[in-house]
């Protein structure tokens, strides 16, 4: 099989997987939030309203896309596409299961195993800023511009914290390949506890917090704070283009959850039972379980916490998260130095 065809199959699979996931994810979020808020939530389309997202998607697809007069057309159109592209591409490096053997060839269940996988993730998530910046600027209107300026500052700031929080993980694994990082988390400590990177607890917490900020989720959703700047960068968007932004945001949430699961919770590692022809399902199951747990955590936080003030957001990022990450990096580096080279006086 040609390498191009294989890559194309992988890409199509990832795209489909994410699409299905997002449809589910939107429904889950609405149901879960309404449960937390003592509401019923969607319940008309399909059993328990499970087809609600599909219905919404269809509606927005057929709605007229209104384009205000003084927009910069090219960028206005490009922005949602960039948003969706970056979101889709990030998932390309996330391994969703253990390697599978078909006809004697081993296939890794990952879009592409890059040796600079983590850097790839960081690079693309910094690309995601452009979608918002372009959308805000191209709209030619005040609130979107304000929203996008806020967004770019916020995302640059928290991306620094996120990158720093990943350094201990890289130090621990000795590689930036995500597949290697997952394999390094196989096995157990003392035969009982799974050897997950969650032992790097500060990193885990910082990564999760900056994940909220990177995806512009509550409590860091100042980019689209309705009370202050209407809808933020997507104020002027409607119809199908708005749907693309919507899609991109939820894919981003799923991406961050999947990355958390992969980087800190051992990814697809977990106990495997049963005969060989069924055993390959287990790792995928474990991966989905962990990822969805984090997704539910995201939803739970959104339902529980109020929005932060903007200056608090910035000072929290720069004055708390980044110093803590730096201190933690130093600690981990010393620990790893001792592990690899022994104590300085020995």
């Amino acid at each position: 099989m040609s390498i191009f065809i294989e890559a194309a199959i992988r890409a199509v699979f990832v795209f489909g997987f994410l699409l299905v996931t997002v449809i589910l994810l939107v429904w889950v979020e609405r149901k879960f939030v309404s449960d937390l808020q003592n509401r019923v939530g969607p319940d008309r389309a399909g059993p328990w309203g499970i087809l609600q997202t599909l219905a919404d998607g269809m509606k927005s697809f057929f709605k007229e896309s209104i384009r205000p007069t003084n927009v910069e057309v090219a960028l206005f159109v490009a922005a949602p596409i960039i948003a969706l592209m970056t979101a889709l591409l990030i998932f390309m490096v996330v391994p969703i299961g253990a390697p599978v053997e078909i006809n004697g060839t081993e296939y890794a269940l990952v879009g592409a195993d890059l040796n600079v996988g983590l850097l790839y993730v960081l690079a693309l998530s910094s690309m995601a800023v452009y979608a918002i910046v372009f959308a805000g600027w191209a709209s030619g209107s005040k609130y979107p511009l304000l929203g996008s300026v806020r967004a770019s500052a916020q995302m640059i700031s928290y991306e620094a914290a996120m990158g720093l929080s990943l350094v201990p993980v890289v130090l621990f694994a000795g590689s930036t390949s995500i597949t290697t990082i997952v394999e390094q988390q196989q096995g157990t400590f003392l035969g009982v506890f799974p050897a997950w990177n969650i032992v790097l607890l500060p990193s885990f917490v910082i990564f999760l917090i900056s994940g909220f900020a990177e995806t512009n989720r509550a409590p860091f959703d100042l980019v689209e704070a309705e009370q202050e700047i209407v809808g933020g960068y997507h104020t002027e968007y409607s119809g199908f283009q708005f749907a693309l932004f919507f899609l991109a945001e939820y894919i981003a949430v799923f991406n961050i959850s999947a990355l958390t699961a992969v980087l800190f919770l051992g990814g697809w590692s977990g106990p495997v039972f049963g005969p060989a022809w069924i055993a390959w399902v287990w790792p995928i199951g474990w991966f989905l379980l962990k990822t969805w747990a984090i997704v539910l955590f995201f939803v739970w936080v959104r339902a529980s916490l109020p929005r932060m003030r903007y200056d608090h957001l910035m000072s929290f990022g720069w004055k708390k998260l980044i110093p803590v990450s730096l201190a933690w990096i130093i600690l981990v580096a010393i620990a790893i130095g001792i592990r690899d080279f022994g104590l300085p006086w020995s």
């Binding site: 960081l122 690079a123 910094s126 800023v129 600027w137 770019s152």
Partner: peptide, 9 residues
């Protein structure tokens, strides 16, 4: 990621 975002900013 950084330089051009700053420029745009």
């Amino acid at each position: 990621g950084a330089v051009m975002t700053l420029f745009l900013f």
